[in-house]
Design a protein around this nucleic acid. Sequence first.
DNA 1: GATGAATGAGGCTTCATTCAT
DNA 2: GATGAATGAAGCCTCATTCAT
Lengths: 213, 213, 213, 213
Amino acid sequence: MKKRARTKHTPRAEKTRARLVDAAIDEFAEFGFHNSKISNIVARAGVTQPTFYFYFDTKEAIHEYLVERVRMELTGLIETARIPATTPASDVMDKLRNAIEVFLKYFEENPKLAPIGYFDGIKSSAIREEIVALVSRNIAFEQGAGYCRPELDPVFMSHCYNGSLERLIRVYLLSGQYDAHALAEKVANLYGYGSVPKSFFDSTAGEHNNLKS
Amino acid sequence: MKKRARTKHTPRAEKTRARLVDAAIDEFAEFGFHNSKISNIVARAGVTQPTFYFYFDTKEAIHEYLVERVRMELTGLIETARIPATTPASDVMDKLRNAIEVFLKYFEENPKLAPIGYFDGIKSSAIREEIVALVSRNIAFEQGAGYCRPELDPVFMSHCYNGSLERLIRVYLLSGQYDAHALAEKVANLYGYGSVPKSFFDSTAGEHNNLKS
Amino acid sequence: MKKRARTKHTPRAEKTRARLVDAAIDEFAEFGFHNSKISNIVARAGVTQPTFYFYFDTKEAIHEYLVERVRMELTGLIETARIPATTPASDVMDKLRNAIEVFLKYFEENPKLAPIGYFDGIKSSAIREEIVALVSRNIAFEQGAGYCRPELDPVFMSHCYNGSLERLIRVYLLSGQYDAHALAEKVANLYGYGSVPKSFFDSTAGEHNNLKS
Amino acid sequence: MKKRARTKHTPRAEKTRARLVDAAIDEFAEFGFHNSKISNIVARAGVTQPTFYFYFDTKEAIHEYLVERVRMELTGLIETARIPATTPASDVMDKLRNAIEVFLKYFEENPKLAPIGYFDGIKSSAIREEIVALVSRNIAFEQGAGYCRPELDPVFMSHCYNGSLERLIRVYLLSGQYDAHALAEKVANLYGYGSVPKSFFDSTAGEHNNLKS
DNA sequence: GATGAATGAGGCTTCATTCAT
DNA sequence: GATGAATGAAGCCTCATTCAT
């Protein structure tokens, strides 16, 4: 919050700024925030160091900018991914999978940017909290609609989802092993039906509803 | 692989070394590896910088030592947490919960050390892979014993578990919100039975077995 | 081979760079390379340490730059110091003296710089070899012209010259005891006529040509 | 001049001390004084660092000890290498060669130790001065005996000799290219008769005696 | 808007040397 | 006589950041 009285937006300036942002994405993606260097960023962007400081106050600033960008885009997606109340029972799994897929697609389409905002340290913990809150609201809604076991804690579930997805994104999605659709399906299957075979349900019928959650 | 091939280790040395290790744990826990400083570590330990280099070659070295320590202790725990084949059906959930609880307990009892080895960046990715491999072996074993849906991919499941737990540890365990036992129970319930209400199982009977996993 | 591939060089930069070079010459001259400190160099130059690294990568780098500079200048001089083939016999000693004088003058005029390049350790051994090679070529040429005993090994002679001069420069020239001209004359006299009195030549006539050289 | 109240000389102590000295010779020979490390010396000697300080006060101390040792041995040799006054004219060159050979032999037989004392920086300049003084005394003596041109400056000549030999030792002797005897012969030939062909002496008769030296 | 040049601050590491046993 | 452990003192170098043009 020092200067930033930037008012002009010539096309040339926009271009330079964009080059810096792209360069920063590449740099952060390759080295992470802590091992990134402004000298590398400006080299990638083909400008000099003072130019960087013309557009951003600090190294943190451009990182925060990226994190914020991810936050906005990601929360926007989540908010629209609620399972419609009118969903017929037979489509629940599809809808669940779809909600997950929307989230994964963002990472698939922004393989460098998204991890910066979502994985990279302290700043991204805020965004994760926000995502968790949104997802938990969706879950609560789905519970109200009967698509989800009501005794489960939505926030808790949301953290589980997010934690898993965070890992799965790295291991399966960014590596190209699975695409968003396939991965979402696998996740939905596991989270939807659990791991315990159906046969056990009978022998332990009703029990799982009694577990305090 | 430079020095430290010394043979003798006086009690005094062990004490100093231990002080350095403890100090490093505190420092890494507080600042993370990247923002940690050797000067801080030695200050916490009450020794001078050269003394640090008497015991460890670099800052990386002591960090690796800690990561390795966590890896050893954690893999040791996992290896012994297999659900016994003789487990009666009615105890499956208890056993599952117990396996998770063992893992969580390690973090509960080593709230500073464990995260260093498990969360902190690149070096810990190896350890996570190893844990995942172990857990997936346990899962496969449980599938063989009929405690787990056979169509699920053990490695995939293992990543889901681990990802969730990683998050839950931070949010619920290290914050003191839940203890290892309670948290394990919640996780087991979700992972064991899934989120979809039992009522849906009837209407979508057999379907979830058809989902390719 | 890191940076310093910059293209532009403002006058200001040239000035700073020159100040650093001069400071380095003084520092190396006073303490030698091993006991020199970058902190001293920048203090002499009136700049900060990072400024040093803006112009040179390491302490070694600036030293190599100086050695290279001496090598260039010195080899340039040597290459033009060949005794002309048309020299009448009576002028041979003058020409020999002159060739030596040219070399000495460089040290006389660059009393701080020249020794850095010529005396200072390992890097300067290469330059000495080069000088020796050049001088030996001149000697061979002079042998062809009849100004030098043909049975002498030019490379060997060249090393003798150089070794002597290296010492004489330190002892007589840099101390101000002799100037280049006077010193060259003394050297030429000794190397030209040897130490054995002429009277012995008669009694041992022809013998010295039989010594295997 | 700190402690050094060492009185006892048990055989074990002598052995340890000798091991340290040998180790130091190796270390200095390999790296030179400035790049040598006490840690390396004691490692070579198979003892610990405090043990080093039990025998020598500082790193400089052991180096000085070695330089002094070389000085003693070398000056002892020089002092006995004077050409006897009764030498017949026909043997002058042999005697000159022999004097040189004695000096070279020391380096041949102590290829690691001798250079430490003779080449290594500031401390060795004193020893060189002493050698030069001794040699010049020998030369003056030889002038008195008529074996050397009387108009030449003995000290100057001595420096020339020494400078050349210093170089020749490194280039030809320590490399194994020539042995002490052969090298001495080459040097004697050059220094005894000079480089100018005998034929020039006639045409420039008497001239070289007029050169001020 | 952009540049070449410069700086402040601080971290890592090494090494000769000494303490306590 | 010798050892394991510890220290004081520096030096090199890097990086984010700013000055002057």
